[in-house]
Nucleic acid binder design. Structure first.
Length: 118
DNA sequence: CAAATGACGGGGT
DNA sequence: AACCCCGCCATTT
């Protein structure tokens, strides 16, 4: 089994667990998915998502709360718009992580690695 | 097969 | 804050 496939599964599970109105970073997702220092891999996986995907990719931002897409680009505006729609304030292409960052938490770890399956 | 690329991150200037 | 540079690594040139 190609390792990167496993990573993809875990990464998507983590992103899917980010609550409405909260955000997290590529690095944090990688860490949480069990692939420390693989932030780029997270970006790669998200870039492959179909447009109709239910995965809340817009809740994932770069380090420091910065939106990873070039300012003014279509994807950038799309992400900023979705975040604003959830009550997350986006200013100068970035969000205040201190205020909106997702603290992981909950039953995610058990869901991923916990007892028995998955 | 070597070099470039990118939805990244961190440190230094 | 704004850059620049380098480490990182799967993919694509």
């Amino acid at each position: 089994m190609r390792p990167v496939k496993d990573a993809e599964r875990a990464i998507l599970a983590v992103v899917a667990a980010v609550p409405y109105g909260r955000v997290t970073t590529y690095g944090a997702v990688a860490e949480r998915a069990g692939w420390p220092r693989r932030a780029r891999l997270v970006g790669r996986v998200l870039s492959a998502l179909p447009d109709d995907s239910d995965v809340p990719w817009h809740r994932v931002v770069a380090a420091g709360g910065r939106i990873a897409f070039p300012a003014g680009s279509a994807p950038h505006l799309r992400q900023a718009g979705r975040l604003a729609g959830e009550g997350v304030e986006v200013r100068a292409g970035r969000v205040d992580l201190a205020r909106h960052a997702w603290s992981g938490g909950g039953d995610l770890d058990r869901y991923l690695w916990g007892d028995g399956e998955n």
